[in-house]
Simulated scan of single mutants.
Amino acid sequence: MGRVIAIANQKGGVGKTTTAINLAAALAEKNKQVLLIDIDPQGNATSGVGVEKEKLEFTIYDLILGETPIQSCIEFTEFENLSLIPSNVDLAAAEIELIGIQEKEYIIKKEVDKIKDKYDFILIDCPPSLNLLTINAMTTADTVLVPIQCEYYALEGLSQLIHTINLVRERLNPYLDIEGIVFTMFDARTNLSLQVVENVRANIKQRVYSTIIPRNVRLAEAPSHGYPITIYDTKSAGAESYRALAEEVMNREEG
C-alpha cells in the first residue's frame, strides 16, 4: 500500500515545489515507485519534471471534475520509477466548479485509493494556500510534510497550518499525521538561519528532519531545465541533501 505524503505550506516561496520534485526524484532513484501529484494551478511541479503543461490531454482538473478516470491522467516522466499527475492553469477554476458538489473534500482521495497499491510513495504538491485543493490533499494523505524557509518569519503561519491539519484530522481524516518539518534555503553563513532552526526546534513539538536543504544555485536552476536536482547536478549539495531526506522519509516508514 503506497504511502501518501502531502507537501504543504500556505506561505509561498518556501521551497515546497522544489521539495516535492526532488524528494520524489530521490525516492525514485532508490528504486521506489513514485507518483507525484501536482495540485497547484501554477503547475510548477509538472514543468519541473520535464512535462509540458500546454500539451496535456488530461490533468488533475479533469480528474476533479469527474471527466476522466485517474489512470488516464497519469503521465510517465523520462525519469525511471517516477510518474506524474499533472496540473496547469485550468485548475484555478476547480474550486468554483465544485460548489454544491457532495463530499467535495474527498474527490482526490476516492480516485487515489484506486491506484494506491501500485506505488511505494505518492507525493502531493499543494498550492500555497489553505483552500479546497489543499483540504483534498490532506484527506487523501497519510501525513503532511511541511517545508520551512530559514528566515525571520518562518514560524508565522506554521501554527495556522498545524491548526488546519488538526481540524482536518478531527473532522475529515482521523488518520492524518504530521510527517515532519524540513528546513529549506539554509544559508550556513548567516546567524539568522541558525537561529531559525534553533527557534523552531525549541518551540515546535513536531518531528523536525535532521536533513537541512541548503540555499543552492544549482537547485534553483534545475526546474527551469525540467530536471530534478539529482539528474541536473547529481553531485551538488542540493542533490545530496534531498537524497538524505529521502533516506529519512524511508526510514520513518521502516521504523
Rank of each mutant, 00 (worst) to 15 (best):
residue 255 G to K: 15
residue 213 I to D: 03
residue 92 A to Y: 12
residue 122 I to V: 15
residue 187 D to Q: 10
residue 205 K to T: 15
residue 193 S to Y: 10
residue 254 E to G: 03
residue 80 E to C: 08
residue 45 A to T: 06
residue 96 I to Y: 06
residue 90 D to Q: 15
residue 190 T to F: 12
residue 99 I to N: 06
residue 37 I to L: 03
residue 216 N to V: 08
residue 27 L to I: 09
residue 227 Y to S: 10
residue 66 G to V: 04
residue 152 Y to S: 12
residue 114 K to C: 05
residue 235 K to P: 05
residue 217 V to C: 11
residue 50 G to F: 09
residue 125 D to F: 00
residue 14 V to M: 08
residue 156 E to I: 13
residue 75 E to Q: 15
residue 149 Q to D: 03
residue 171 R to I: 11
residue 57 E to P: 00
residue 229 I to K: 01
residue 251 N to A: 14
residue 8 A to V: 09
residue 220 A to K: 10
residue 26 A to N: 00
residue 90 D to Y: 10
residue 109 K to F: 09
residue 132 L to F: 10
residue 178 I to E: 07
residue 211 T to M: 01
residue 30 K to R: 15
residue 108 I to V: 15
residue 245 L to P: 07
residue 235 K to E: 12
residue 155 L to A: 12
residue 65 L to A: 06
residue 176 L to Q: 06
residue 56 L to N: 02
residue 53 K to H: 08
residue 147 P to R: 02
residue 62 D to E: 13
residue 44 N to A: 05
residue 38 D to N: 00
residue 138 M to G: 05
residue 194 L to Q: 11
residue 146 V to L: 10
residue 202 A to I: 10
residue 168 V to N: 07
residue 221 E to Y: 09
residue 211 T to C: 01
residue 233 D to H: 14
residue 36 L to G: 04
residue 229 I to L: 01
residue 18 T to E: 09
residue 71 Q to R: 14
residue 219 L to G: 06
residue 59 T to D: 05
residue 23 L to P: 04
residue 239 A to I: 00
residue 234 T to I: 10
residue 186 F to Q: 03
residue 152 Y to L: 14
residue 187 D to V: 07
residue 88 N to I: 05
residue 34 V to G: 06
residue 229 I to R: 02
residue 246 A to K: 00
residue 253 E to T: 12
residue 110 K to V: 05
residue 210 S to N: 15
residue 78 E to F: 06
residue 186 F to T: 05
residue 244 A to D: 13
residue 128 P to A: 09
residue 244 A to I: 03
residue 163 H to K: 14
residue 45 A to E: 09
residue 223 P to F: 02
